[in-house]
């Protein structure tokens, strides 16, 4: 028993057994947890959300589209549809199915909780944005109406989720859809991104990898059947039209208010240089954004780079009389203007 070879072999077996049980996705424990989740409630609520989505985007919902959205078989989708119908939540139409008023109000409640969670995850945690949606999908089914209202109050009753979707009010009101697809913008026109669709996951991951965010101002450069090319925060981005359709935009008619050249950021400032802040990127959110606002980083603030750390990052800036160090990753999201009203 005390032979080290035996012990090492025993430990190997033990580790293997632990892995089989505890692996986060494929482990026995994780699988059991998934099976034990309240599968029925999840199915119903996800189906209602899908139906509401169709309704909101004015497209027809069918049994196959439900099956596709929930990733279940056609038979299961048909069974689910008839159960929802029996519950009085949906009615058949000529083209497919649609929500009854009761169904619609239930769906809006689920949508509200989902978007509240996304807002919470974006602003109050540091979860990467590709995980907001899936985490909210999981959390939305595990919260009571009272808890949802407490969450909304904690977040200051937000109006939009981080993807730019309106959050339905507790009374079930939701403003009509705004914005047009990116492909409707003509070359040379300015627009602001109002919505980034978070499904399918792979496309959203690609869009967020490009650094696109709701509230970003873009200028269309070229727009053909094969590709859409536009400038965003001084960088040129090229997307395939099928991907670009997941972006909604609103035209900016007063393009003269927007600086024509790409905006410089605080990260580009050299030591000793004084610049004026013109804004903070919308991609900088939650605690970090509030921190910067608290420090007085607002449009019009004069900032001077004083010194860099031994390793080049962070950099210390004089902001309103205080010497404050900021990391490069955040300085990159603070837009500045050079050469104006430079004083001590």
């Amino acid at each position: 028993m005390t032979d080290p070879v035996h012990i090492v072999v025993a430990a190997g077996i033990l580790i293997l057994a632990a892995a089989v049980f505890l692996l986060p996705r494929h482990g026995v424990l994780a699988r059991m947890k998934r099976v034990h989740k309240d599968a029925r409630r999840v199915m119903i609520e996800d189906a209602l959300k899908h139906l509401h989505d169709c309704d909101y985007n004015k497209i027809a919902c069918t049994v196959p589209s439900i099956a596709g959205a929930l990733m279940i078989s056609l038979d299961d989708a048909a069974a689910l549809t008839s159960r929802l119908s029996a519950m009085g939540l949906l009615v058949p139409t000529d083209t497919g199915v649609k929500l009854t008023p009761e169904g619609n109000s239930y769906a809006l409640r689920v949508v509200r909780v989902h978007r509240l969670w996304e807002k919470y995850l974006a602003d109050e945690t540091s979860l990467p944005q590709t995980e907001w949606h899936s985490s909210a999908e999981d959390r939305e089914h595990r919260i009571s109406p009272a808890e949802a209202e407490a969450l909304a109050a904690q977040l200051g009753n937000p109006l939009f989720d981080p993807h730019g979707d309106p959050i339905p009010t507790a009374a079930g009101e939701i403003p009509p859809k705004k914005g047009a697809p990116l492909s409707s913008v003509a070359p040379g026109e300015w627009a602001v991104i109002t919505h980034i669709e978070d499904e399918p996951k792979a496309l959203f991951a690609q869009l967020s990898a490009e650094g696109l965010y709701v509230g970003m101002r873009i200028k269309m450069i070229e727009h053909t059947n094969l590709r859409i090319r536009f400038a965003a925060d001084g960088e040129e981005i090229v997307l395939a039209p099928v991907i670009a359709n997941n972006l909604s935009v609103e035209l900016l008619p007063h393009a003269e208010t927007v600086p024509a050249s790409p905006m410089a950021t605080l990260a580009s400032v050299t030591v000793g240089e004084a610049v004026t802040v013109v804004g903070i990127s919308k991609a900088l959110r939650g605690q970090q954004r509030r921190r910067l606002l608290d420090l007085g980083v607002v449009p019009g603030t004069l900032v001077r780079a004083e010194m860099r750390s031994v390793s080049g990052d962070p950099t210390a800036y004089t902001i309103r009389g205080a010497l404050v160090a900021l990391r490069n990753e955040h300085a990159q999201m603070i837009f500045i203007e050079r050469g104006e009203r430079v004083s001590a």
């Binding site: 995850l121 109050e124 945690t125 540091s126 979860l127 985490s135 939650g286 605690q287 970090q288 509030r290 921190r291 910067l292 420090l295 962070p314 210390a316 205080a322 010497l323 404050v324 160090a325 900021l326 990391r327 955040h330």
Partner: peptide, 14 residues
């Protein structure tokens, strides 16, 4: 700790 809130700023007092 992935989900915990995070922010960075470092004041360098005189």
């Amino acid at each position: 700790l992935k989900g915990q809130a995070s922010a960075f700023s470092l004041e360098l007092p005189p």
